[in-house]
Computed example of a mutant assay.
Amino acid sequence: MSRAPDGGIPSILEFTHGLVRQVVRSADTVVDATAGNGHDTLFLAGLVGPQGRVYGFDVQAQALENTARRLQRHGAERQVTLFHAGHEAAGRLLPAGTENLACAMFNLGYLPGSDKQVVTTWHTTEAALRAVMPLLRAGGLVTLHLYTGHAGGSAEAAAVHDFCAALPWDGWRVLRYDFLNKEKNRETLLALCRQ
């Protein structure tokens, strides 16, 4: 695990990216379930390289435009397919034969700098998880970055926690990473590793 730039404890984003780097290799197939402004999409595209494939989902056209521009600026658009759909559509939009996924990344909440009323919900997140989890290879990873500083965020996070806590030990390992004393804009990472 890489250390934070200041030598301290890694932020949730740094910790997440460190975990993903340990799992994703060149030519892998991965999912960015919430493309947002394209930061994780670009990160994943760099890991899988031109021979790999990233499938990105977002319900907001502006998010996909932001992501596409970011990918183009870095010459990484070739290995990415973007879907203008919520992540709950993964089950029907991922191409037939998509299996052995190395990773699926989720950032739950709302698109920074956009309409805070457009948010992920447990209903859509559950559908997405149930679609992508069976496609993960052994050792594959799902990351769920939970934000609770918006309306409905705490309820979604609680439902995600309950779902993950109920996963069988013989099939999954679930890691939780957060800062207990962070008072504002609470966030938590849940990382699910398929056994």
Rank of each mutant, 00 (worst) to 15 (best):
M1D: 10
A4W: 08
G7N: 06
G8F: 01
I9Q: 10
P10E: 09
P10W: 06
I12N: 01
I12Y: 01
E14L: 12
F15N: 04
F15Y: 14
T16H: 05
G18N: 05
R21Q: 08
Q22D: 00
Q22F: 00
Q22H: 05
R25P: 08
R25N: 12
A27N: 11
D28M: 11
D28K: 10
T29G: 13
V30G: 02
V30F: 08
V31R: 08
A35E: 01
A35Y: 08
N37W: 07
G38L: 10
D40V: 13
D40C: 11
T41K: 15
F43A: 13
L44E: 07
L44T: 00
G49S: 11
G49I: 06
G52Y: 11
G52M: 02
V54G: 05
Y55Q: 03
Y55G: 07
Y55P: 07
V59I: 14
V59F: 13
Q60W: 08
A61H: 14
A61D: 15
Q62I: 14
A63S: 14
L64G: 14
L71K: 09
L71V: 03
L71A: 02
R73N: 07
R73S: 02
R78P: 02
Q79Y: 06
V80P: 05
V80Q: 12
F83S: 13
A85L: 14
G86D: 08
G86Y: 13
A89V: 07
A90W: 07
A90V: 08
G91E: 07
L94W: 10
G97A: 00
E99N: 13
N100P: 09
F106Y: 15
L108F: 07
Y110R: 04
P112G: 03
G113H: 05
D115S: 08
Q117F: 07
V118D: 01
T121W: 02
T121N: 04
W122C: 04
E126V: 09
A127N: 00
L129M: 07
V132R: 02
L135E: 10
L136Y: 03
L136F: 01
G140K: 09
G140T: 04
L141M: 07
T143V: 00
Y147L: 01
Y147T: 03
Y147E: 05
G149M: 04
G153L: 04
G153S: 03
G153I: 03
S154F: 09
A155F: 01
E156P: 11
A158D: 15
A159D: 11
A159R: 12
H161G: 04
H161D: 15
H161K: 14
D162Y: 09
L167E: 03
L167K: 09
P168S: 15
R173F: 09
V174W: 03
L175T: 12
R176G: 11
R176W: 02
F179T: 02
K182R: 15
K184D: 14
L189N: 06
L189D: 04
L189G: 05
L189R: 11
L190N: 02
L190Q: 05
L190F: 03
R194G: 02
